[in-house]
């Protein structure tokens, strides 16, 4: 991987400065069933297409932000701080 990613604080930077935490998941609100829990913990949509994911600017401002990335092309469509 060598694409650029625009950190909302620092601007476009080499992807190696970041850590990708993977697609955004929805954490269950109340006590989940075993099935709901394992789906939240272990199952991912793993889309071939645009995915919303968490990124951390490890070698920069150390902020977490959200990016929309096309997993097929690594084109980053947008980045934003979590609202």
């Amino acid at each position: 991987m060598s694409f650029l990613l625009a950190c909302p604080n620092c601007g476009p930077r080499d992807v190696n400065e970041f850590h990708c935490q993977g697609e955004v998941t929805i954490r269950p609100k109340a006590s989940p069933s075993r099935r709901e829990l394992s789906e939240y913990l272990y199952f991912r949509r793993n889309v071939a297409g645009v995915q919303r994911e968490w990124w951390y600017h490890r070698m920069g401002c150390e902020a977490w932000f959200l990016a929309e990335r096309d997993t097929r092309t690594n084109e980053v469509l947008s980045t934003e701080l979590p609202e």
Partner: peptide, 13 residues
């Protein structure tokens, strides 16, 4: 480093 990242992530949520 991992703990800081972890703390920051949860607090981003």
């Amino acid at each position: 480093e991992g703990v800081i990242e972890w703390f920051e992530w949860w607090n981003a949520i």
